[in-house]
């Protein structure tokens, strides 16, 4: 039940997106996410949507997983778009009580919805096609210059990759604990908000205790495997930028250029 979350999962594969260097992918992703929020008219929004559809298509991952990841934030999308719908400025085209519908509001709602959906799809695209190890590896290497000012780059990357590794394990454990409590008659589904939050305590406490025990075990296992921090460590996978990665970055730059041009040439609608 808890395990049925596709957001943040990795699907091994050999698609174009899988093969792009994680550093290039991460940089492109950051640029893409920023540019999503710099779309002010339908032409630039269209460019982003087109790019997004292209990415989803070449990721080689079944669209149902993307829908699944969207399902999680459906409520957020609905609330923000409805709020935006009635918070526009300008002339009202429909009015009832405190609700005031304007063209500006409709545009805003469309933009917000499309932007959030693109944001989630882009993050899914990244995490579906990049293994957590690759991702933290890319982060570690991109942030390497910061190590010079004694920023603990390696430690942070290691913590992130361990955290990501244990997400499914801890979810599974939560599931087991919930079932164990239910088997003993715990009621977690009924009652008001506070009652339900309170019924989570018997799950959270054992979960924390076991998480600490696990942390101790992992530290022991890591020491047994000669882990002694980041210095003197090598990596099995050497990352190197190929023509493919440069093309990906150029494509992202072109997309950014396209969005800027659209914004300059056409009037913004929000």
């Amino acid at each position: 039940m808890v395990r049925d979350v596709s957001f943040g999962q990795y699907f091994p594969g050999k698609s174009l997106l899988h093969r792009i260097d994680p550093r290039a992918k991460l940089l492109c992703f950051i640029a893409f996410v920023v540019v999503i929020f710099f779309t002010f008219n339908y032409a630039s929004l269209g460019l982003i949507v087109a790019a997004m559809v292209f990415l989803v298509a070449v990721s080689g991952i079944a669209p149902k997983f993307y829908f699944k990841s969207l399902k999680v934030i459906l409520v957020v999308v609905l609330i923000t778009s409805v709020l935006n719908l009635f918070y526009g400025s300008g002339e009202a085209i429909w009015e009832w009580w405190i609700l005031r519908l304007t063209w500006n509001g409709i545009h805003r709602a469309v933009f917000v919805t499309v932007r959030i959906i693109c944001l989630i799809l882009a993050s899914s695209c990244l995490t579906f096609t990049t293994s957590p190890t690759e991702l933290t590896d890319a982060l570690e290497r991109l942030m390497k210059p910061l190590a010079k000012i004694h920023f603990p780059v390696h430690e942070i990357a290691m913590m992130m990759s361990l955290a990501l590794r244990f997400v499914p394990t801890l979810l599974e454990e939560t599931d087991k604990l919930m079932q164990a409590q239910k088997a003993r008659g715990a009621d977690m589904e009924s009652g008001g908000f506070f009652k339900r939050v309170r019924s989570l305590i018997p799950i959270l406490i054992p979960l924390f205790v076991s998480a600490f025990r696990r942390a101790y075990d992992i530290a022991t296992a890591m020491e047994c495997r000669c882990y002694r921090g980041g210095s003197g460590r090598t990596r099995m996978k050497i990352l190197h930028m190929s023509a493919r990665d440069i093309i990906a970055m150029i494509a992202t730059a072109l997309l950014i250029g396209g969005v800027i041009v659209c914004n300059l040439l056409l009037a913004s609608v929000i």
Partner: peptide, 23 residues
Amino acid sequence: NQLVASVVEEDVAFGPENLGVDP
């Protein structure tokens, strides 16, 4: 509690990586 990476082969590589073995 002793597998540290999210992919099998990367986990197996953890030990030799720590020893600074050539990729």
